[in-house]
């Protein structure tokens, strides 16, 4: 597959999700998505994964979805991060939590380190074709698979997709952000983990 002709701005992609998510949803973001999500305003049940071990956001989402089956868990992960832990796609579909949606924003580069191409990007590959994330998701057994290159169409469909029984896989073709930097930690990670743990435990006890 070649890079799609149309790519949506990352900001627009996340703005549509920001408007569609419910307050009780958990949204996990990493790297560039975490930076943009925090700028839009992260909710008290969100987890901007900063600092991170790159590629682990979908696995954290899997654990959260299993622990809180009555709550929607949405993970926004980069293409490079997804390639780091491809096995996570299989682990997710093995457990198959119906409340998990994995969104992969594909810009073909490691954006925050200077936009070097990933090994999955067309321009870094001997055959000039990018890897097929949709095909991977299908082969791994995701129940519902979606792809969007146009921000308007994504914005129109996002509510329906989040309401679809999962695990869901969404590929968003996004354009790299020129000169983008890594996300800055919004505060001590341990305190944020403790706060989220308490908030989710409190919410779970109300269910």
């Amino acid at each position: 597959m070649n890079q799609p002709a149309l790519q949506m701005p990352l900001h627009d992609a996340l703005l549509a999700l920001h408007r569609a998510r419910a307050p009780e949803d958990v949204v996990i973001t990493s790297m560039g998505a975490a930076r943009e999500w925090m700028a839009l305003g992260a909710g008290p049940l969100d987890l901007p994964l900063v600092p991170s071990s790159m590629g682990t956001a979908p696995s954290i989402g899997l654990g959260l979805a299993l622990a809180q089956p009555g709550r929607r868990v949405i993970v926004v992960n980069g293409d490079g991060a997804t390639l780091m832990h491809l096995g996570a796609l299989v682990s997710i579909t093995a457990a198959a939590p119906a409340n998990l949606t994995l969104i992969v924003q594909d810009n073909g580069v490691y954006e925050v380190t200077g936009a070097q191409p990933t090994p999955g990007a067309a321009r870094a590959r001997a055959d000039g074709s990018s890897v097929d994330f949709i095909g991977m998701a299908r082969a791994c057994g995701f129940r519902s698979i979606f792809r969007f290159s146009d921000a308007g169409q994504w914005a129109r469909e996002v509510d329906r997709i989040l309401a679809t029984e999962g695990p869901n896989f969404v590929l968003l073709d996004v354009s790299p952000v020129p000169g983008a930097v890594g996300p800055r930690s919004p505060g001590p990670a341990a305190a944020r983990a403790r706060d989220l743990h308490r908030a989710l435990s409190r919410e779970a006890s109300r269910d």
Partner: peptide, 17 residues
């Protein structure tokens, strides 16, 4: 599928109570 996932899945489970 790989042990690096295991710690992260456990983290999500822990955060979720």
């Amino acid at each position: 599928c790989r042990e690096g996932e295991a710690w992260a899945v456990a983290a999500g489970l822990y955060l979720g109570g």
